[in-house]
């Protein structure tokens, strides 16, 4: 099993959305994993919501660390 490869794929998806100017607006965690909702900061594109289903524990850590980082930068 190479779970790390799945993590790298999920990390790339998270990074791409962040680079596109999206921010995490909602997280729902249930039996099927974490469902993380991203929305652009740009007001004109507010209706463009992307939801990632994250399967790996490393991804669940990663998006939380990214969320904290963004908050720290903001403050």
């Amino acid at each position: 099993m190479h779970e790390y490869k799945i993590f790298l794929k999920e990390k790339k998806q998270i990074d791409e959305l962040m680079e596109q100017g999206c921010q995490i607006v909602s997280v729902k965690e249930n039996l099927n994993g974490a469902f993380v909702q991203f929305r652009p900061i740009d007001e004109e594109a507010l209706d463009q919501v992307n939801t990632l289903r994250l399967l790996t524990p490393d991804s669940r850590k990663y998006f939380t660390n990214q969320l904290r980082l963004k908050r720290q930068v903001k403050n």
Partner: peptide, 17 residues
């Protein structure tokens, strides 16, 4: 690794969304 983050801190952070 990243800066320390506990489960309690993680959940508190997610609760702010």
């Amino acid at each position: 690794g990243e800066e320390p983050m506990t489960w309690n801190e993680r959940q508190a952070l997610l609760n702010t969304l």
